[in-house]
Design a protein around this nucleic acid. Structure first.
Length: 467
RNA sequence: GGCGACGUGGCCAAGUGGCUAAGGCAAGGCUCUGCAAAAGCCUGAUCGUGGGUUCAAUUCCCACCGUCGCCUCCA
């Protein structure tokens, strides 16, 4: 069974067949660097990270390119407000962005091209489009001529006439058609500028992605992703530019994730406010919990960010973590598979079937919970570490495809704190041995107040910091 | 106005034209435990409303109600 992905172009799930298997050329729209990313960005990048991990799991060799848009009106405006340069602003937010992505266990892209490093290709494409009659210059600006593109609107399934009927923006009267968009903008005094055949200027918003794709992947790519909100006009315009320039199909598949919002509010986006920043989310929840929460809903369904929801995900993860506790490497034997090993095998099949169906991560997570229960049950019934090992290996592998680490959230404990906690735990153990349970319980309460949770077992008492 | 999506147990959320409608959280009972914690077991849904198609619909079609997205910047 092949992997099926929903392709925005066809509005259908389609079998995924890259141009040159096993190679997959994948491009995901990166952030505009005028400010920090928020958890809505995290959602999008977690989803495409999961897609990439799954493609690799399925044997594909993925080249993942993600751009940084480091020249754009808002960046110029923000740099001016903050009395800094666009370069400094970009550096600051790139560093922060990469740190945050790492913290969310999002694998890095293979290449992070920047718009300002693609200027020569942007100029070359713009020039080429003018020569083909697909673009025209007016007073140092260059516009793409949408009426020259016969299938303009094919991604969002709208005709130019429909779009113009619903237009809500003031139109620049110099343009030949209201929907024509800028490939190149003449710069005003004091704005960053690059030399071009049309005078000093800078790229329009959409052309940089077309140029970076051309530079990094070539004329045609397999998969292009981003949020629903960049479908129009950004992706529509990218297609128009790239295909008009090369005369070839640009991307075979277009994928768009639905957007995150706060309860009762509109989507989370920087120009509306209502943002939750990634460090704030990570201060409250493990990256696993954030991922599990996000992947608990299909990527094409909008999701509301709630404390209850992420907390529920965090609780649920505890069972998954318990299942992989003390895992050992499975021995290579040809012994008859146990019922548990059999269950692990079936989980793997179900996982693949679910993920093959347009990344049904919620369903996939469900079967992983089933497997975790099987493991925990077997352990409770006295299975040995070696008995559990194959199923645990499957659990770790498949949760890993979803980008979950199943590691206990690390909470810093100083050496001094650890020493005093150990002393209290030892004191309590002594009291228990002496059957002075009331006193032992008092010590436990004391530890609890310190944020230390303890667990007794035949092997002794263990503790962990829970806050 | 145009295009599109969604409405499943207290909350979140998969899914299917007919077989027990996944899973997570919460709640109650139980096992284990000195007591807990963790883990495990048990307990709950006529799938927004009204029509239609069909031997059979939560699943397909239509209408309605409600929520949301895109049509401007946005992951």
């Amino acid at each position: 069974m092949p992997l099926y992905l929903y392709n925005t172009l066809s509005r259908q799930k389609q079998a995924f067949t890259p141009r040159h298997p096993p190679h997959v050329a994948m491009y995901v729209c990166g952030p505009n660097l005028y400010g920090p990313a928020h958890i809505g960005h995290a959602l999008s990048y977690i989803i495409f990270d999961t897609l990439k991990r799954y493609l690799k799991f399925r044997g594909y060799d993925v080249k993942h390119v993600q751009n940084f848009t480091d020249i754009e009106d808002r960046i110029i405006a923000t740099a001016r407000e903050q009395n800094t340069t666009i370069e400094a602003l970009a550096e600051k937010y790139i560093a922060r962005f990469l740190n945050e992505m790492d913290a969310l266990n999002i694998q890095r892209a293979d290449v992070y091209p920047r718009a300002t490093e693609a200027i020569s290709t942007i100029i070359q494409m713009t020039q080429g489009l003018i020569e083909k009659g697909a673009a025209y210059e007016i007073e140092g600006d260059v516009y793409f001529r949408v009426r020259a593109d016969a299938d303009y609107g094919k991604l969002t399934h709208r005709s130019l006439d429909e779009m113009e009927a619903g237009a809500r923006i003031a139109v620049d009267e110099r343009k030949h058609d209201p929907m024509d968009f800028a490939l190149w903008k003449a710069s005003k005094a004091g704005e960053p500028a690059w030399a071009s055949p049309w005078g000093p200027g800078r790229p329009g918003w959409h052309i940089e992605c077309s140029a970076m794709n051309l530079e990094q992947h070539g004329e045609q790519i397999d998969l292009h992703g981003g949020g629903f909100d960049v479908m129009f006009p950004h992706h529509e315009n990218e297609i128009a530019q790239s295909e008009s320039y090369t005369g070839k199909e640009f991307s075979r598949y277009w994928m768009h994730n639905a957007l995150l919002h706060l309860p009762g509010e509109e989507k989370m986006t920087r120009h509306l406010g209502g943002l939750v920043y990634i460090p704030d989310a990570l201060a409250r929840y493990s990256s696993d919990a954030i991922r599990a929460f996000i992947l608990g809903t299909h990527y094409r369904s909008p999701l509301s960010w709630t404390d209850e929801g992420v907390t529920a995900a965090e609780r649920g993860l505890e069972r998954l973590r318990a299942a992989r506790q003390d895992a050992v490497a499975p021995a290579l034997t040809d012994a008859t598979p146990t019922a548990l090993t059999q269950a692990a095998w079936e989980t793997r099949q179900k996982f693949i079937t679910l993920m093959d169906d347009d990344l049904n991560t919620a369903g996939a997570l469900g079967v992983l919970y089933d497997l975790a229960r099987e493991i925990n049950r077997a352990r409770g019934q006295g299975a040995s570490a070696q008995d559990l090992a194959p199923a645990q290996a499957t659990l770790v592998e498949l949760t890993g495809v979803l980008g979950l680490t199943l590691k206990e959230p690390e909470r810093a404990v100083s050496a001094a704190d650890a020493a005093s906690i150990n002393a209290l735990v030892a004191e309590r153990d002594a009291l228990r041995a002496a059957k002075k349970y009331a006193d032992a319980d008092q010590v436990r309460a004391q530890l609890s107040e310190m944020g230390v949770e303890i667990a007794d077992s035949p092997q002794g008492t263990t503790w962990k910091k829970t806050r």
